[in-house]
Design a protein around this nucleic acid. Structure first.
Lengths: 211, 211, 211, 211
DNA sequence: TATGAATGAGACTTCATTCAT
DNA sequence: AATGAATGAAGTCTCATTCAT
């Protein structure tokens, strides 16, 4: 799954004029490290080994460059969490999804996109809204669809599958994401992540397992 | 006369020096609306109807002013979520706490503090860490303590009470907090919040109710 | 001679309203340490343990305060280098004067006045001019008068006594003042000062001793 | 092509990048007129007919710009006082050097560098120390070396050649430099400078001429 | 297309000075 | 007389953006 992430990036890289690619790569790093305001176009140019002027050949302004990166992030996200074959059993699917999800969030610099977007959601509501829709909501919907299929088959007994999907995703973050994103703890260990996802799955099924 | 002086000082600090209050109120608004970087000291001065220079009479710099606001936020937080009497039964306590918690997060401008701090946690890790410790972790710990008491009494069967506390809090946010904080939805209705908290409580107890 | 300096200060202190004294003392220290621009009225107020407002009760503005200090400095200077009794023999007189002079310049913080005034002479020519007239030129004239007396008595053979006076004073600074004032060396030792003044005297008399 | 690039760079630095020259020239004027603190970057930008931002393209900060000017000053100084051929006779050499030296110090705006550096030596000791070393001390050493050569040849009888060098230089300033630098007198006339240097030379040789 | 020199608006901060008490 | 809270002008420096090459 982590490989999937890398592949996605690689694929995107191959198409695209190489300068544009360079810029996006440099910019992502700088934006995610420093935040939207903290990142300067100069720093980005340096990270991309491109002149400052070139930045403006490919992107109208700082904001457009930033959104282009979120776009990519959205694609990546979409590709990763995509294993919702209704045929697979719930426990396995949830655990696997949970793992992928929490890995995505807690990978080094992984909270960065969420954090960075959140930071400017107030000043640029469109950016926030779009990111939520394309990334977070989309994932919820996919999981919800999967759950609905299993509700239909009598496998699960869920009233509000959208809520349930969101609940599962929140459960996977328990004790992991917040400390990580607030820099109050280093990235969690594999074992810890597994334990949390297992606990989330157990809890979820305890509540929603159809009889 | 010396006492007079001291009294004056005391009064001034008691009524929070009025000017200081003005500044804090203006600054909170601007910071929460625009984020740390987006807020300018000039804007803050205007919002507080105070001269720019006065800002620096009361606070050493922009960062100190920001932290003073987080401090207040932390106090507020601490006062709200305070009803963990071990004698109360779990369902009631959890529901009540869940309500208070989600109200706090989703009140108009309520995600702002979390969002704003999250945004600068990368560049100012201390601020992030401190906020997490004083606000989020503290709440988790209180809930965890409550849970431990009920585990001891055989009321609940929980292995890792810290994890469980975190899980409950995450569950309460399901489908509510993220859309709200990303500006993808308005503040949720009372009914919706109640429904989500009820669902969270049901799920939690389904998993952890002692037999 | 050094005692004379201290006495002068003490005398000045006794007259003068004590607040004014406090201010002058605090301001002198701050001005001399930090220069005219480097010194802030706030710092001066703190050094004088007086409120900022009080500064303006006694002095119209920063500049007036500064000039008041130079005034004092001028008085002090005048009092110290005052042992030009025409009856004393040249060698002794010159050596004693040279010692006093170089001690004054190289005492800890002693170049400070000259340095500080020099610094603003371009922007505030009056201040520079006045300081030169009251302090430096006055001393030269006194020494010149002394020399003239000895020329009259045939003791010395000097064409231009003003130039000669200036020459002797410059000679006393040789290798001492510049390194000190540029912070390229610590204050010179007593021995070194004595040696330099002796050398200056010898040189001076070699050139100007009447036959 | 790479060579072309390098050539361009070389050319740019050779012609001192014209913009950089503009800045240095404007800055020198402003710094020397107003002192380090009195000079504002805005004023300098105006004097150089350059935008404020451009200043920071070429120099890291105000201090770096100032030091760049001192650097130039040092170079100039070094080039002027350069005729210490040990073969030349002492009287001629000293007179010529004295003339060059006093001209340098008393040229319009010539005391400015010394004055300005002196002014900030207390707050920025490194700047003072470096300037002293590169400009003043260097000159002293060259003169001292010259004197040593003549001591070796029996031409002069000097104990401490470093002191002697310093003494000669101080003598040349007598009655000229201080009034000039304190704005108490206009730049001295040619005749006056010649007279003072002649007197200095006579005095020096009277004291140190070997028998 | 790609550059990088140049800009000017605006950010944070300091400080001399004023004024009500 | 003495205070200290308050001010606003001005200073240093950064940065998104433009433009000639």
């Amino acid at each position: 799954m982590v490989e999937a992430v890398r592949d996605t990036v690689a694929i995107v890289s191959e198409e695209d004029s190489s300068k544009r690619r360079q810029i996006l790569d440099g910019a992502r790093k700088v934006f995610m490290d420093l935040g939207f305001d903290g990142a300067s176009m100069g720093e980005i140019a340096r990270a991309a080994t491109v002149s400052k002027g070139t930045l403006y050949v490919y992107f109208a302004d700082k904001c457009a460059l930033f959104e282009a990166i979120l776009e990519e992030e959205a694609l990546q996200h979409g590709q990763v969490v995509f294993n919702f074959d209704p045929a697979r059993d719930a426990e396995t699917t949830l655990k696997e999804f949970g793992q992928a999800y929490i890995h995505l969030l807690c990978r080094p610099g992984g909270g960065s996109a969420i954090r960075t977007v959140m930071a400017i959601a107030e000043r640029m509501p469109d950016v926030g809204r779009r990111y939520y829709g394309r990334v977070l909501d989309k994932t919820i919907n996919r999981l919800a669809d999967y759950l609905k299929a299993h509700v239909a088959s009598g496998d699960l007994a869920i009233d509000d599958c959208d809520l349930a999907a969101s609940q599962f995703m929140e459960l996977c973050k328990a004790s992991l994401f917040l400390p990580f994103v607030f820099q109050a703890a280093p990235a969690p260990s594999e074992e810890r992540m597994t334990a949390v996802v297992d606990s989330a799955t157990r809890m979820f099924l305890a509540a929603y397992r159809g009889k």
